[in-house]
């Protein structure tokens, strides 16, 4: 079974993102970039399926600027067999990425696509679901457990308030949640081997996909600053404020 693992290059998890002074977006110049943490979990899960003899080949794919190669190399160092880069400098929104991935799936014919539930930059949480829709494949989002049994995959999902288990016939799309696994470190020999693994570059035009953005970002601003705190006189007043002013409790 072939597994496709899409990975995204995003700001490093440990870096606190700041809004650009001109409000046009986030400050990303000189910021450390990394593989989206949920995608790292996806790569790990694919590698575990391969180690378990379930998967035979893992293909990592990334869409974006040429520097996404760094994240693909990381996926290769973690155990992916080869990589595809769909190179473009156009700002890619989830629907465009899903369409690119669909084109890749049409070419590669994987039985399973595993990807992160969301990217920690735009926090959209859409690409996996959109890809499943475009392919008319089943989807299991927010996976915390994955088991492949023949032509069926059973996925436990983290839903609000608990867990839900679905069984789907392959091919399918799975998006990962944090508790699915703990990604390994790339070993030094594997980092060196990753250099020699194939990395193919494509363009959206070659795949026949229109990636023009559907949404325009008009501005990005800082979240509202912390208001001066107040003392409340009673628990009742506190509950009232939390409910109606701060709106953080139901």
């Amino acid at each position: 079974m072939k597994i496709l693992v899409p990975v995204k290059r995003v700001i490093d998890y440990n870096v606190k993102a700041r809004v650009k002074a001109d409000g046009s977006g986030m400050e990303l110049a000189n910021v450390k970039m990394a593989m989206n943490p949920f995608d790292e979990i996806a790569v790990e899960e694919a590698v575990r399926l391969k180690e378990a003899g379930v998967a035979s080949e893992i293909v990592a794919v990334s869409c974006g600027e040429a520097k996404c190669q760094e994240q693909l190399r990381q996926a290769l160092a973690l155990g992916a067999d080869r990589a595809l880069l769909v190179e473009t400098t156009v700002e890619l929104q989830p629907l465009a990425v899903a369409k690119l991935l669909k084109a890749i799936v049409d070419r590669e014919a994987p039985r399973l696509v595993i990807l992160g539930k969301q990217a920690i930059d735009d926090d959209a949480n859409q690409t996996g679901q959109m890809l499943a829709a475009l392919l008319d494949w089943p989807q299991a989002t927010f996976a915390s457990k994955v088991a492949v049994r023949g032509e069926e995959i059973e996925v436990t999902r983290e839903i609000d308030g608990g867990l839900e288990t679905l069984a789907m016939t392959l091919p399918a799309v799975v998006t990962t949640d944090l508790r699915l696994n703990e990604p390994r470190y790339a070993t030094l020999p594997n980092i060196m081997k990753a250099k020699k693994k194939p990395l193919e570059t494509l363009t959206p035009a070659e795949l026949g996909v229109d990636v023009a953005p559907r949404l325009a970002t008009l501005k990005v601003e800082e979240p509202p600053a912390r208001k001066a705190g107040v003392k409340v006189a009673s628990v009742a007043e506190l509950v009232d404020k939390l409910r109606h002013e701060a709106k953080v409790i139901p």
Partner: peptide, 18 residues
């Protein structure tokens, strides 16, 4: 001969992570 910039950067990054 094999030690290109990309390899150096990945080694540094993985070491840093560890």
């Amino acid at each position: 001969e094999e030690i290109d910039a990309e390899l150096v950067d990945s080694v540094l990054e993985e070491a840093a992570k560890f």
